[in-house]
Design a binder for these strands. Structure first.
Lengths: 233, 233
DNA sequence: TCTCAAATCTAACGAATTGTAACACCTGCA
DNA sequence: TGCAGGTGTTACAATTCGTTAGATTTGAGA
């Protein structure tokens, strides 16, 4: 469970294997399905980080599937479809898809779009290199964490990457896959552990109670949520 | 909260006014710029939620601009470009753009894609989401259950799912099927048992008398009913 | 009422996930 | 060269949560 997992649902075998090859090349784990039935069975067991879905399926209405996926699972959903009409794209996106790619597609673009999605659309943050949250002030330009009392603690670059990710998306679930993507992960097999360690070190500097962290919450099997009230500037 | 703010940067006046009209129609505030210089000045003052950027600008290298925007501001960046080569799209996305739309574009699709991007920014946890019932206070933002006396008991994510389900539908029968549906719908054969266990653990934390539960009632053969007097806030 | 099968409860186990201390390997610098 | 701090890796501890299995409860029918 270290690389982001991508489910591919398409009835054309050539497309499946093409996508599968390209994505594995790009450092993702993939699992392919030819029909919605088997796709859903697999979904019940694991939640992928991204779903690539073809709409023209023999055994289900693709749009309904996309809607459910986006709503219930929270996975990133990308539609890959031969239907090129603007109306198709609009309804697909309205129903919850995060992107819509038209066949024939270029594999490189698919990879690029997946990366962009995993990186995550960040909410707009104020310009400036400092953020305030729950009594702390993080100075990213100086790599300094400031106490309510003004006491300073330095933090390293690796720690700043994690902290920035949290502060840019407070109160949102951040999956490990997203972190890996955002932190320029080298897709190393054991990067999961490295991330744990980064977070652990960050927690120490934020003086979190190990038994009961207030700011960085772990969601078992899903990721982390940063619970601070953040303001940039 | 006011309307999301969108900055439009394009050197063609017709495109600017077209986008501007459509987006205002769709409920956004917009601000248009014909050249990068004025765009950057405005950026220094306000941070938009979304930037629509044309890459073929007279006075700046668009890609550099996008890179800076994405990196420093964290705004959602959507490139609108006449350059249709796959390579252009890939590098644009790699540099931090969140989407890449090719000219000529359909206004409806632009709106749909903006919506899709902004949708992802919703918080997973509302700040201060708490519910009171029968002397207890459930803090879903902190995963904490609070006693009348103020004593705190943490609860896990899995437990929070069940508890939230109950608190959102108090005094109503909740069938096991409904639960399964709401709790990730892993139609696993033995998921029934897993749910029992979750409820059992929840009961323990709520200090229910096993012989005579006051809050979570089992309806043999039908489901459960939560009997608390719930008030959210 | 009594009996029994189905439904439910829960203690205990174990697989998967996460936390973190300790170590190793860098890099930059005096 | 030696030192200091940063960072990934390893190894092991702790936690979460589904599963199992046996006990207990329920309600329909005898």
């Amino acid at each position: 469970m270290s690389k982001p997992l991508i489910f591919i649902l398409d009835d054309e075998p050539e497309i499946r294997s093409l996508l599968s090859d390209v994505l594995q090349e790009a450092g993702y784990d993939t699992q392919s399905f030819g029909r919605a039935a088997s796709f859903e069975i697999a979904l019940a067991q694991r939640t992928p980080d991204v779903c690539l879905v073809d709409l023209s399926l023999p055994d289900t209405d693709g749009l309904t599937l996309v809607h459910r996926l986006a709503l219930e699972k929270g996975a990133v959903v990308i539609i890959i479809s031969g239907r090129a009409q603007v109306q198709d794209r609009v309804t697909g996106l309205e129903l919850g898809a995060d992107d819509y790619i038209i066949k024939p597609f270029d594999p490189a673009e698919v990879v690029a779009r997946i990366r962009a999605r995993l990186r995550g659309a960040r909410p707009a943050i104020q310009s400036g290199m400092t953020a305030r949250f729950n009594g702390w002030t993080a100075h990213f330009d100086r790599y300094m964490l400031e106490d309510e009392s003004g006491a300073q603690t330095p933090f390293s670059h690796a720690e700043s990457e994690v902290l920035r990710l949290f502060l840019e998306a407070p109160k949102r679930l951040i999956s490990r896959a997203q972190m890996q993507e955002s932190l320029g992960a080298t897709a190393s097999e054991s990067f999961d552990r490295a991330m744990d360690v980064r977070i652990s070190r960050l927690r120490t500097k934020l003086r979190e109670d190990p038994k009961n962290p207030q700011l960085i919450k772990t969601i078992y099997g899903a990721g982390y949520i940063f619970l601070g009230d953040v303001s940039w500037g």
